[in-house]
Amino acid sequence: MKGLDARLVVRRAAFELDLALAAAPGEVVALLGPNGAGKSTALRALAGLVAMPDGHIRLDGTDLRPLPAERRGVGMVFQDYLLFPHLSVLENVAFGPRCQNAGRRAARRRAAQWLERVGLAEYASARPRALSGGQAQRVALARALAVEPGLLLLDEPLAALDAHTRLEIRAALRRHLAGFEGAAVLVTHDPLDAMVLADRIVVVEDGRLVQEGTPAEVARRPRTDYVARLVGLNLYRGKAEGGTVVIGGTEGEHALDTVDSLSGEVFLAFAPSSVALYRTRPDGSPRNLWRARVAAVERHGDRVRVRLSGPPFDAVADITPASVAELDLSEGSTIWAAVKATETHVYPA
């Protein structure tokens, strides 16, 4: 079988990672998860930097697990790049080819080609500390790719960059990943990075896979609170029957009307922007109407995010700053909230 097929098992004192992971050649898989979920540990296990007594890592049919890091042929881009400070940019990139027994001249030639490809040829003789964050990231990528790895690992490749550089480097990274023929695994806690860079997202929480799918699927159908928060949706688990979903609220059950005709265990999601808020009970009473307490009012881009707490259930609403003034919102006040049935989205759990 071509590509990566792995089951990563790492046990620590209070933590266990057990993750099945596959990536076809040319595919970019993002491991998305909160801090401490085990994403970086998974990457280090793939690279051979943590011992893995159980599980397997097959790359193009070869089991890498018994091999030490230096014999795995895996390229890794570290979070803070770890360019060797005592070597020039060119020597950094030539380091891998040199280790593969390429002669000094051949290694330098290969390094120069990679620097050309990432657009940093003129920095060949510079020291890493003279580079900007974005440039260092590109050199780190060139250094990892110069060993022509079968598997490319990227640990939070954009986390150390400022917002503006990030945008630019993300686009460049996407191009380079598209040109890479091996499998690539990328670790991030930023959903946007995962959406833009990956063909498939694997959500990891607490050392376990909790959701897997294309970026569009994950964004549209979150299956955990963490993912729902990341993609900005209100998410509830409940039982559907005849167009109604009964969810477990903060105090007992609560029924919500939907337009889907599923039955059984389902997830119900709706966007914060689809929640309407009223000071007094609205006329014509929309179907999904509830009284909620305002727990917090926060700025969220050009919108205002209102956190509503139950009973009956917790939710998040996005409204305009003008509405905040009209509604005279303040923390602790009570308010009416409504969601149209057509704005809800129901899918099997």
Partner: peptide
Amino acid sequence: EAAATLGA
């Protein structure tokens, strides 16, 4: 570790 992943 970085050096090891580069094959050293």
